[in-house]
């Protein structure tokens, strides 16, 4: 009887332990966000967004950092979206049984596990040195595009997989070729899922720091980039630079810049989750 009671107690005790663990990470994150808001919110004003970097914390702004992030986001999207979607379409629609496709598939699983800093070493040798892009936006965008390519490919495949066969068969029945079927039927039907994956991948690129440090992105850039061959900095780089300085004023700046960066990532993730839910409802064919 006591044994039975003991078992019941353990059983319900674990329930509360489980709830505690589930919320533990989220509570820690909430404490952290509260902390950052308390520290950095009063620092955010128009000047902070439009000032160039400076040695004096009170005068320093994030203009070069957020414009750099916008550049990187745009260029990375231009490079990675066509390549990623095309590769996903090939693997899902064409290469079902051939050897090349299965090698690519294993390879993508492996690439997804390669640490981001290794992509930085690749970018440093290939884009910065061999192709002579230097520490430019273009070198950074190519490096990040390779980094997020596996995410976009996998998302594209998942989305295409969810499109029912009947849709393709109807199109073939009307005399459409394989590519016409993909372009006019399958891809539009899968677009919600693909878009979700693309946004998540790009939000990952926006938060990356390590590979950009390795390819030589600078912490101090006194001008706004105007073309893809310009040197650049991004928000995470600026935050890293400010965190490493001893004066408290820079820590406040870092907190303020983190608020902006988190805002960008959370908005992107929010859009992605919204699209996913909307698309999942529609996709119950």
């Amino acid at each position: 009887m006591t044994k039975l009671n003991q078992n019941r107690i353990i059983d319900s005790a674990f329930k509360y332990f489980g709830i505690f663990c589930t919320f533990f990470g989220l509570i820690v994150l909430a404490i952290f966000i509260f902390n950052i808001l308390a520290e950095g919110l009063q620092r955010i004003d128009w000047d902070f967004l439009t000032n160039l970097p400076s040695r004096r914390p009170a005068k320093a702004g994030i203009l070069t950092a957020w414009t750099g992030t916008a550049w990187i986001l745009g260029l990375t999207a231009i490079i990675s979206i066509p390549l990623g979607v095309a590769a996903g379409v090939y693997l899902e629609e064409y290469g079902k049984k051939n050897r090349l496709a299965s090698i690519i598939e294993i390879n993508i699983a492996n690439l997804a596990g390669v640490p981001s800093i290794i992509y930085g070493l690749l970018g440093l040798e290939i884009f910065v040195r061999t192709l002579n892009f230097g520490g430019s936006l273009l070198a950074g965008a190519f490096t990040l595009a390779l980094l997020i390519l596996p995410i976009i490919i996998v998302a594209t495949r998942e989305a295409l997989k969810a499109v029912p066969k009947s849709l393709r068969e109807a199109s073939f029945g009307m005399g459409a070729t394989k590519w016409q079927t993909i372009w006019y039927q399958t891809l539009p039907a899968a677009s919600g899922g693909i878009l979700t994956g693309i946004i998540l991948a790009l939000s990952r690129a926006v938060g990356e720091t390590a590979p950009l440090i390795v390819i030589g992105a600078l912490a101090y850039v006194p001008f706004v980039a105007t073309n893809p061959m310009d040197e650049f900095t991004v928000l995470p780089m600026q935050i890293f630079n400010w965190v490493s300085r001893p004066q408290h004023g820079f820590v406040v700046n870092a907190a303020a810049a983190i608020i902006i960066l988190l805002l960008i990532t959370f908005i992107m993730n929010g859009i992605a989750i919204y699209l996913r839910n909307k698309w999942q409802k529609k996709v119950n064919w």
Binding site: P82, L83, G84, A86, A87, V89, Y90, L91, Y94, G95, L100, A101, I103, I104, N107, I108, N110, L111, V114, I118, Y119, L121, L122, E125, I126, L146, L149, P150, I153
Partner: peptide, 20 residues
């Protein structure tokens, strides 16, 4: 063209190994 996009991922792996 689609297959070539897939090949980029293999080139990435080969590139990483070659560089390192």
């Amino acid at each position: 063209a689609l297959a070539f996009s897939g090949l980029i991922t293999i080139l990435t792996t080969l590139g990483i190994i070659w560089v390192l």
